[in-house]
Each structure stands twice: as C-alpha cells, then as structure tokens.
Design a protein around this nucleic acid. Structure first.
Lengths: 205, 205
DNA sequence: GTCTATAAACAGATAGAC
DNA sequence: GTCTATCTGTTTATAGAC
C-alpha cells in the first residue's frame, strides 16, 4: 500500500484518530478511571504532549470517543440489521447469529459501552447526549422491526415496533453480557430463538 | 431501639459490615478505580486504619463486597420470584412490575454489578467465581420458570426452562440498563409485556 | 505539532501511638 | 481495634525545547 504524503492538518487528524483508537483499547481494558493518559499515548505511539495537543485532557478524550465512536459502531449495526431479513428460511436464526458474531469479533465494545453507561450515570449532563445516541439506534432498529412485523401481521398497535425495539435491544445487551460471563449458557442460537419467541408471542395479541 | 453492648468480636464485625455498606455506596458512585479507600472509610465513619485492620486493601474489600453482597441480593430476588405467581390474573404484569420496582428502589445495584462485571472481565480468575454466582441465580430462576412452563404446557424440551432463564435474566439486565438511560422508553409494564411475549412465543413450538 | 522534563496533587499502604 | 502521621509511587497537566 502506497504511503501518502500528508499535509499538516491531515497529519494532525491522523494523530487524533490514532489516539482515539488507542483510547478505545485502553479504556476498554482498564476503564475510565483506571486508564492513564500516559498509557493511551504510548499505545498510540505518541507522547503525552501529543495527546494534550489534540485533546483538552483525559475527560475530553473519553467524551470524544463516546460521541464519535459509539455512533460509528451504531450505524454499522444498523447496516447489518438492514441486510439481514433477505434470507428466506430462518431470519431470526441468521440475525441472532450475526449479533453474536459481531459481539464476539470486537471484544472491546461491550466493556467500553459499559464504561460509557457508568460515566453517563455519574455525570447527568452527559447522560442527555448518551440517551440521544441510544434513541437514534433504537429508531433504526424500530424501522427494521416495523417492516418485519407488518409482513406477517397486518393489524398491530402502532407503538408495538418501538416497544419491541427497546426489548430486542435490551435482550441483545444482556445476552452479550451473559456470554462474557458464561459462553456456554448464551450460545449464538439462543439469540435467534429468543427473537423468534418474542416476535411469535407479540403477534396478534 | 435499645443499644446493645458489644463484645470485641461483635464490634469488629459491625465495623466490617459498616465498611462494606460504605464501600457499596462509594464503589457504585465512583467505580472501583475511581473510589479511594479514604472516602470509603470516611463514608463509614472510620479512618483509613480501621479499613486496613478489616481488609487487606482496596482490592480485598471490593472482592469481599462482590462475593458477600451480590449473593445476598440474589437470594432476595429469588424469594421475590417464588412469591410472584400466586396472583391469578396477570402474573407477568405483576412480575415485571416487581422487577422494575426492585431496580428503581436500589439505584446503586445496577452500577455496582456493572463494576463487578467489568472487574471480572479484567481479572479472569475472578470471573470463575462470578460466573458461579450467576449460575446459582439462574438456577433459582430456572426452577420458577419450569413450574410456570409445566403449568400451561405439558410437553416441552427439557432444556427450555434453562434457556428461558438465561433469556429472561438477560432481558431484565438490559431493561434496567435502558431504564437508567431513558426511563420513558422502559416503563414497568414493558417488563411484563416482554415476558408475556416470550413465554407465549416459546410455548408449543 | 510533538517531545522531554517537571510541577503539583493524590492515592494506596504502613508504622507507631493510644 | 482504631487513629494519626507519613512514606512511596503514580497521576494529570503544564512549560519550554525542537
């Protein structure tokens, strides 16, 4: 791959991104309070000075990570969702499998989001923007669910997709958590089975 | 209430309990790495010395809290579960309501358990005992679910209650999390509705 | 823009008094 | 058994060199 000559602003932007990558890894591994700016800078291959030249401090770096990267992951997930129900036979099974695979592939994501959640609980003003992020993700999920629900069941309460989106999201979060505690108790098929039960049970009630 | 004269060992045990209570509050509020032993001791009304006389250090205090208090909460929950399905009309609704109420009542519990989970992920040997705790809770839940499933449906796969227990537990954890982000999106009724969908959908499949 | 060196504050843990 | 005083290492953040 050809190395490109970078302008001054591009170089700085690249440093910033590398620091954010490193921060994601270190915050996931050590937590917000447990991570040190020195370790993050070193993980990125820079010194403390470079970090402070790009961010106001540890808190600013963490918050930048929360708003910039959490959002990215979320739209990835949304794309995955949109793809899924092409499969003819067992849509839930395939969907559940994908959910589990995504979680297994990026092992940093769940601890990092737990850190975000804890930080937001402890800093109420931050929770407002965090909640807005989550509402966006739930809205994407709701759209996908609305299509699926309408497909099999012409008549349903108008708020059912929104409510199902919350439940599916909560279920997914909890399953990922449980899979880290005891993988055998939360096999990939169980994700799909749970979804199938949920949608079957919500139908025509 | 009459003050009782305490023996030496009773006094020490009392100090220990007060330190554990304080630790639960401070660890929930600040996290493991963010909390200081000085603040925990002060919150309990003691000095640093008293803390070190009862625990080997911050880590030991945290682990004691994890094994002693997490277990207590769990058996409380199990008792709550056992009570629930006496109500004739809407068992799921009542159960969901109770789940939400318990979570709302003790606001420290969810952040503290998140701290335990993160700590266990970062200290694999600890995860083994944490997982054992969780398996116990799931086993209790499974027993309750098995009774309920058998009530309506004579013939079901033998592993269904165990699988449902994992799903219900994951759902509950995720809903509590979501309720802290955006309470309106996770009203108490939704807990019960989700359970009803789940059990309806798992029936006779 | 990034690096090195350093300042200033703080934390976990210990020692000895009571 | 608990408290006060202190030691030691680490942390965030800054200042000035390049």
């Amino acid at each position: 791959m050809a190395e490109k000559r970078l302008t001054r602003v591009e170089a700085k932007a690249r440093t910033r991104e590398q620091l954010l990558d490193a921060a994601a890894r270190v915050f996931a591994a050590k937590g917000f309070a447990g991570a040190s700016v020195e370790e993050i800078a070193a993980e990125a291959g820079f010194s403390i000075g470079a970090l402070y030249s790009n961010f106001a401090g540890k808190e600013d770096l963490f918050l930048a990570l929360m708003s910039e990267r959490a959002a990215t992951r979320i739209s990835d997930t949304a794309t995955t969702l949109a793809d899924w129900h092409d499969g003819a036979g067992q849509p839930w099974r395939a969907f559940g499998q994908q959910m589990a695979e995504v979680a297994d592939k990026d092992m940093d994501l769940a601890p990092l989001q737990a850190e975000f959640w804890l930080y937001a609980i402890r800093h109420p003003p931050v929770m407002a923007t965090f909640a807005e992020n989550v509402r966006h993700r739930l809205s994407d999920l709701e759209d996908v669910i609305a299509v699926e629900v309408a497909r099999e069941d012409g008549d349903y309460p108008e708020d059912l997709p929104a409510r199902l989106a919350v439940v599916v999201s909560a279920l997914f979060t909890g399953m990922v958590r449980q899979r880290r505690i005891d993988p055998e108790s939360a096999p990939p098929e169980l994700y799909g089975d749970a979804l199938r039960w949920l949608f079957r049970g919500a139908k025509n009630e």
